[in-house]
Design a protein around this nucleic acid. Structure first.
Lengths: 211, 211
DNA sequence: GCGGAGCGGAATACTCTGTTCCGTTCTCGC
DNA sequence: GCGAGAACGGAACAGAGTATTCCGCTCCGC
């Protein structure tokens, strides 16, 4: 069969993205999923995958790093927004929408990060904190930047079988969380610290057994 | 060595609870953790474990069912509270405090549930819904009982290496969520349905690959 | 002192999964 | 047309991981 619009190169390029998308889906659902599951999901053979990545860990790393870059992109995009609170909201919406937090957080620990990734993680943290500080005047007093990580984590925990509904529900609870972030009586207990929140990035693969 | 206060029977009884506690910790951190990890955590040999449970799945089932029963217990305890909102809050606090939701939700799908468990799950849902309805007058209009499940799910997603801090932080975010549950502008998108929220209970092990 | 409940942990028997390998297909330049 | 090789599918391989069994030992309880 001679598919008109697909030379081998073109097909291969398409596979590049297909595989990445499949990997995202599969590893998001189960970070320990086998490589074969990714290939199956993408509808390609295993060799198509191994042609692109030296090994499983490289794929994971790439996936996570892409997520991190998206996160940074969203942060930068939101920073342009003139209204402080709007910028903050735009940012969170963007991150939740792109389902980026799942990628970066849930996958952290499944591979050894490169120095570049660590640097990007730091940058991401700084950008997010800056956005937070701008919006802080409109938040309850006890809120701290580290809360941001937890908020995103909580949103990422919202999941139902249908991906579309998942996104919709996440919007719902993000809105609820933001309302909770704005006002209310004093919160109990001390706020999270930066260290508590960033611990995932400090783990090397296998250093601890966690799901 | 002749430990005064420990006959073989007593020691064995102690192991009963030690093993269960260890299993809870281990499987909460990683639902796919090996049985040997539980034994190690409990400081006993593997045989001590297999003497009590025919197999891994039985242990998981027991753990989950215990969690379910605790959930029901908390609901019943809270129901006695005369003030409607206080009852609702007491219930959620109790569930979060006992870290029961992680048990029931995260473990669901790792074993085939017994009929009794299914029945208990239904009962749990009814009790929780009743508590919710009582408190509804003080919530924002769009809130539905199914939100409860998601709220608990989100709290369970809060986790840091230190267990004590985890509990403390969960209290923090539960408070924030409750504030968000009470007031604010309209929430986006349709509310979750009961089916969307209960899907975990419908899965048999291996029916789907999810973390 | 003895029988046996409890136990520790090595050994077993798989299953699961990362990676390699080889034959095949299809494109492109000639 | 045709040959070279890029890209691929998927079987085969190797090794790791792990549920479960088994055996010999300990020490309580009588």
């Amino acid at each position: 069969m001679t598919n008109p619009a697909s030379g081998r190169k073109i097909q291969a390029a398409r596979n590049d993205v297909t595989i990445l998308a499949a990997a995202k889906e599969v590893f998001l659902a189960d970070k320990r999923a086998p490589v074969s599951a990714v290939a199956e999901r993408a509808g390609v053979g295993i060799s198509a995958l191994y042609r692109r990545y030296p090994g499983k860990e490289d794929l994971l790393r790439k996936l996570c790093h892409d997520g991190l870059r998206t996160f940074i992109g969203e942060a930068e995009r939101a920073t342009a927004e003139p209204d402080d609170w709007a910028a903050f909201e735009t940012f969170l919406h963007g991150v939740v929408e792109a389902d980026v937090h799942s990628l970066t957080v849930h996958l952290a620990g499944t591979f050894t990060p490169t120095d570049e990734m660590t640097a990007d993680a730091v940058l991401a943290g700084e950008l997010a904190s800056a956005l937070f500080e701008r919006a802080r005047p409109r938040m309850r007093a006890e809120a701290v930047p580290a809360d941001l990580t937890m908020l995103l984590e909580m949103c990422a925990a919202v999941r139902v079988p249908d991906p579309g509904r998942t996104t919709s529900l996440r919007r719902r609870y993000l809105a609820m969380l933001l309302d909770g972030l704005r006002a209310g009586p004093a919160l109990p207990g001390p706020a999270p610290t930066r260290i508590e929140v960033d611990w995932r990035w400090l783990r090397t693969p296998g250093s601890s057994s966690s799901e």
